[in-house]
Design a protein around this nucleic acid. Structure first.
Length: 280
DNA sequence: TTCCAGGACCGGG
DNA sequence: CCCGGTCATGGA
């Protein structure tokens, strides 16, 4: 059998990667499970199915693509060492324990930028619906009803009315704006990775529709800059209720973005509507 | 029907 | 710097 033929592969031990938590924690919007718990996703034109098989996380892919997927799941980073530093407040310790097995995916930068533009003042089920429509309408079909995320060039060539079927509301303008900046090279991902993070954040928030929060989500999930700390309404509630009033996320160190993900995932699964809304 | 969602922008204080 | 109003949409 050729190495390009798909076969069942061992990706890693289940202790290293919890696929349910990783896909459902709110960092990504295009991994979906079937009735038996098998998740399927598409990254850079590659299709992966992944599931739990006892001690190991198993997946269906070509052997010569296994390294690609190990990189996507960030398997070479020691998350347990990073998590051990999340000791206080006690609430954070609890969130880190609850989120054990989450890994921050190395998503495609343009997809992360675009999906988190869509995420603003929106709920996760609806974000997923809009993103799915975006892919179905403008992405290349890979068969089986699976579509690639459309390129920035493809979106940049569209008009506002072309995006009407998305029902994305005022976000459509922001999507087009970002797509044009990426497609024409004025927003360069390699450059953003190279320059100091604060400069990168300042640069991307110059784009219309990208503020501090979406900019941080893009940097964390799209550029894998692990010390970005996006603060949304859930994080605001958690910070107010469980952290000192003068708490500075910088104190959490180089993996503060991971801490943020643990907190978000815990708060959203345990505290649905228990607190008053902050702002939206 | 009203409220809310992984916000951002804008004007005024 | 912070505040409130506004933006478009649909699930709960």
């Amino acid at each position: 059998m050729s190495v390009s033929e798909k076969q069942t592969m061992r990706l890693c031990e289940v202790s290293k990667l919890n696929i349910e938590k990783t896909f459902e924690c709110g960092q990504c919007f295009r991994w979906n499970a079937d009735a038996s718990g098998v998740y399927t996703g598409i990254v850079q034109g590659r299709i992966l199915s992944i599931w739990n098989g006892g001690e190991d996380v198993l997946c269906l892919c070509a052997p010569d693509e296994l390294a690609f997927w190990q990189d996507y799941f960030d398997l070479s980073t020691d998350y347990s060492a990073a998590s051990k530093k999340f000791t206080q407040p006690e609430y954070l310790r609890m969130c880190a324990d609850f989120g054990e097995g989450i890994r921050i995916l190395r998503q495609e930068p343009w997809e992360a930028l675009c999906t988190f533009i869509i995420s603003q003042c929106n709920n996760i089920p609806r974000i997923k619906g809009i993103v799915e429509n975006l892919c179905r309408l403008f992405g290349k079909e890979l068969g089986d009803g699976l579509f690639e995320f459309p390129s920035s060039e493809k979106i940049a060539a569209l008009t506002l009315s072309d995006l009407d079927p998305l029902r994305a509301g005022y976000r459509s303008e922001y999507i087009l704006c970002a797509a044009k900046a990426v497609a024409d090279g004025s927003l360069n991902f390699d450059e953003l990775r190279r320059i100091p993070p604060e400069e990168a954040h300042a640069k991307i928030t110059q784009l219309r529709g990208i503020g501090s929060k979406v900019g941080n989500c893009f940097m964390l999930y799209g550029l894998h800059i692990m010390d970005r700390f996006p603060v949304d309404v859930w994080m605001k509630r958690a910070l107010k209720a469980h952290f000192p009033s003068d708490f500075d996320p910088k104190a959490l160190g180089a993996f503060s973005g991971l801490a943020q993900q643990y907190i978000f995932y815990y708060a959203r699964t345990h505290e649905k509507g228990e607190s008053e809304p902050i702002n939206c």
